[in-house]
Design a protein around this nucleic acid. Structure first.
Lengths: 167, 167
DNA sequence: TATTGTTATACTCTATAACTATA
DNA sequence: TATAGTTATAGAGTATAACAATA
């Protein structure tokens, strides 16, 4: 349990970290912006998956995922094949050029970070990674909630008639 | 000195932290988006300052700062007074309504973080803050480098200290 | 001539809503 | 009717360039 001042400070640092992300974004190839890089990275790490799974890993709406995926598919970096088990779905898979692009991204990122973090110890980098991962976990699936999500109606005497249709 | 795999992982976590920032952004008042909140927070923490100083703290271009500042000034949250020492400059200062707004932001943020991080120890939150602050410091002033618009140097190939690798 | 700040424009990212095609 | 995915549209953030006023 932290105090309010500590939470404010954490929020401030989260905001400030944006500068780091922007700096990383500047070294990306012109036709591979952050969204595309994220798609390639997650496919490289977790293997083939469906759109919905990728959207969950990206923690963004599926419409956003669809746009990013279309961009990398247009460049031949991934392949979208129909899911035999569900004809509405598509299975995403890295292509050989996709892996090459991913490798190039990885190279550039490592180069920049090695330069910026040259006075960091291996352990400190590891500690930061671990704490950031835990922070991310603490937020779970925090994507924008669909207009009509939860909050059981039973306790609310007001206007339940027009609420969501749960099932 | 970390290994390439560790740098990749750090980049991945930096990307993933975006979900946390988006979640925080969702609790902001409709007329006070992230950019405005950042301006208020920095003015509250560092006191009165000029545009250029604020741009440096935000780590964004001055044109971006100008836009954010105009937004909060339009709502009466800050005051822009001329700098007696330099008529080109403007001194930014929080107003009473601005402080009230800032307090409301702080309250909402603390509330959300207290909920999300309820199983974190004070020390762990502190450690994360410290490491993120150090990360930010390691990147220094990493704003986009101005495109040196080669000022027609007739006969002087002088290498002014802006020796960058153009391409 | 250089610097401070503003504005116009363009691009990226994200979310909502409407739509399709399956289930 | 519900779900997987696409597309259109809108809002926020940032960068570049051109500009005005002052140094």
């Amino acid at each position: 349990m932290a105090e309010r001042a500590q939470y404010e400070e954490l929020a401030r640092q989260l905001s400030a970290i944006g500068a780091v992300k922007r700096d990383l974004g500047r070294i990306l190839p012109p036709d591979c912006p952050g969204g595309s890089a994220a798609v390639l990275t997650l496919l490289g790490r977790h293997g083939d998956m469906r759109m919905s799974k990728l959207a969950e890993l990206l923690a963004v709406d599926m419409s956003v995922t669809s746009r990013h995926v279309a961009h990398v598919a247009d460049r031949g970096w991934i392949q979208r094949s129909p899911d035999p088990a569900d004809k509405r779905s598509r299975i995403l898979r890295l292509t050989a050029p996709g892996r090459a692009q991913l490798d190039e991204l990885s190279r550039r990122i490592a180069e920049l970070l090695a330069e910026r973090l040259k006075d960091w110890s291996d352990d400190d980098v590891g500690r930061l990674i671990q704490l950031m991962a835990r922070l991310r976990e603490s937020f779970g699936d925090c994507r924008a909630a669909p207009r009509l999500a939860q909050t059981a109606p039973a306790a609310d005497p007001v206007a339940d008639r027009t609420t969501r249709t749960p099932a």
